[in-house]
Nucleic acid binder design. Structure first.
Length: 169
DNA sequence: TGAGTGATCGTA
DNA sequence: ACGATCACTCAC
């Protein structure tokens, strides 16, 4: 189990998002340690990407995406579901990877509920943290790409980008 | 296919 | 202050 370091995250989101498939999220609480293998991700890439929250610039909500890669970006959607994102790229380049599925828990809202992720994890530094860490155990699945989900508003070009990555047979 | 749910942001 | 929006989920 190799821990992913700061350098892993300071690259373009289109590199990091597929490389996160097969990696392991480790959640540590005072009660237990649990591992979740990532099976599905989506890339959101800068202010030009009309599907990315940063399309309207920097606000208090989107500010985490403007930080140096390697921190978490957490927000609530539809008043119910916490979304788990990993910020990538250099400072002031707003990019993030949405964790859309882990083994046994598909769906971005379901996995955060299962993991106990909430707003307290916003801005958390992954490579510096005890409670949320990412590991590589050498597993290298086949990876497929497809269109992102739930972004029909994003315009013809960006809604059709194949920036969703998932483990294939 | 549509209801539930509340933080966020643009408009005043 | 208000209203529209929303990277979802589950039950019909």
């Amino acid at each position: 189990m190799q821990k992913l370091g700061a350098d892993f995250f300071t690259r373009d989101v289109l590199i990091v998002a597929p490389e996160l498939i097969g990696r392991i999220i480790q959640i540590k609480t005072d009660k237990k340690v649990e591992n979740f293998r990532i099976t599905e991700t989506e890339a959101y890439r800068g202010e030009e990407d009309l599907a990315c929250h940063a399309r309207k610039g920097k606000t208090s909500r989107t500010a985490p995406m403007y930080e140096t890669g390697g921190i978490l970006y957490i927000y609530l959607i539809y008043g119910m579901h916490w979304m788990l994102n990993i910020v990538t790229a250099e400072k002031n380049n707003p990019q993030a990877v949405l964790i859309r599925g882990v083994a046994q828990y598909n769906g971005p809202g379901k996995l955060t509920k299962r993991m106990g992720i909430n707003k307290k994890f916003n801005y958390l530094k992954i490579y510096d943290s005890e409670q949320f860490q990412l590991f590589d155990d050498g597993f290298s699945p086949n990876i497929a790409a497809g269109k992102r989900i739930g972004i029909d508003y994003a315009g013809e070009v960006y809604k059709n980008k194949a920036w969703r990555y998932f483990q294939s047979e």
